[in-house]
Design a protein around this nucleic acid. Structure first.
Lengths: 242, 242
DNA sequence: CGTATTCTTGACCGTGCTCAAGTCCCGTGG
DNA sequence: CCACGGGACTTGAGCACGGTCAAGAATACG
């Protein structure tokens, strides 16, 4: 529950009773390995999910095998809140790293939030943030160059991760995903993704280290990418009440 | 209310009482002219909107003036359902044609749906469809060629418009928007948008006529674009109860 | 330690961009 | 009714960003 609690506390002063109710309504999933399919297009969803740990990603596959990653889900992210109306999923979800989820059954979820109205606005805001990320992704791949796209994505990850814990941005960004995944996120080829990384490195904006990257010049990265973290920004966690 | 009623009837057996309550909770906006700004980035939203008539579009502007259109809103579409938590808008909305909206205040909206629980699932599904369109837009601009993008967008418009009325697809698609808007939707230049139209015409797939286009070969359009309308498909309107 | 996957680099090619000129269309005013 | 002006669309020429193919290097993994 830790990730979810932390996330909810960004939006509401959550009380222990509601928390307990949520915990009872949910079940931990098995642990998925990197590459494992979690949800497939066409699946009928009757529950929503919270990432307990690890990274997952949503994507679509075209007939000829081209793949587009829609977005990544990080610890504490909820997804498919919208889909609890028992509609068929229009996309796939896979694990990027080792991943564990918390599953919350649609019916139980509705009962719990009905009894704890404050939860409604929290989950509502989580869903709204999901949409903000999708809209950022559209402008990123629609109107930015490869270099701008990569810089922009790096800053998005950095911001979202620093939202999930209280640590100051240290300059080190843990990036547990391959360049293939990054390429399919940014709508470019793997080869060009590699060249773009090389370019950012030669510009002394980042440096790759094992398991992640070092952000050497955040100001310049922001400047060339046009990144605006305002709408995604960290709302300081509230105190735990009750 | 006609557009909204038609839209809601796709999802629930709406009764006249709930309808009346919704109507009382809402107010018609002034009529916007083409190009008029409806919502600006940074605006704090305290209401949600329904398109009464006309086309509107959401978009972002980059520092240097590049514009990316996120999606279009057609009659009966609801938007910013998510934003009634009084957050700042992360994007702009403008009128593409003459547009009139229905404004529904957040507070009143919540009261009405609380008294008419069936409305919840209807608006929930409308919000879910909004997300489906955003995800389609990501794969469209991320992984498709200009020709595929245009064919795909044409089919999306065609499907969504045929969803808003009971008419069989006639082959004629009313398209009240300039190629500049289409270019900024597809993430290509205006010049290339024009060339792409020319290409589809020379392939005998479409034909431009005043105020819209004729779809000459829908099967081929679907084939080259990979369009899949299943998730966006028309759910037959239900009967009016009560 | 060997195999597979990921990343890098080079060479060449193509889709789509930019700049520029010209055409078409339509609303406005003489 | 026609002249004018502006916006939207078209077309051409040259160029650049990013794609593809291919080979090699580095890293991870059993």
């Amino acid at each position: 529950m830790e990730s979810l609690i932390y996330r909810l506390r960004r939006y509401i002063n959550i009380d222990r009773k509601a928390l307990k109710a949520l915990e009872n309504a949910s079940r931990l999933s098995e642990i998925f390995s990197p590459g494992d399919r979690i949800i497939s297009e066409g699946d009928v969803l009757k529950e929503m999910f919270v990432i307990e740990f690890g990274w997952a990603y949503r994507y679509k596959i075209l007939d000829d095998g081209r793949r587009q990653i829609l977005n990544f889900m990080l610890p504490g992210d909820c997804f498919d809140i919208m889909s609890i109306t028992e509609t068929k999923s229009d996309h796939n979800v896979s694990a990027a790293t080792s991943v564990q989820l918390r599953r919350i059954k649609a019916g139980t979820f509705l009962t719990v939030i009905k009894k704890n109205p404050k939860l409604v606005s929290a989950f509502w805001k989580i869903a709204a943030q999901e949409e903000i990320i999708l809209r950022d992704q559209i402008t990123r791949i629609g109107r930015r160059s490869a270099t701008e796209r990569l810089a922009h994505l790096i800053l998005e990850f950095d911001q979202r991760i620093s939202n999930t814990n209280d640590s100051k941005p240290s300059g080190f960004l843990k990036l547990p995903i391959s360049q293939t995944l990054i390429a399919d996120t940014l709508g470019i080829s793997v080869v060009h993704a590699s060249r773009t990384f090389t370019k950012l490195k030669s510009m002394k904006l980042i440096q790759t280290v094992s398991g992640g990257i070092l952000i050497l010049n955040r100001k310049k990265l922001i400047q060339i990418s046009g990144f605006d973290g305002n709408h995604l920004s960290n709302i300081p966690p509230l105190k735990l009440a009750g």
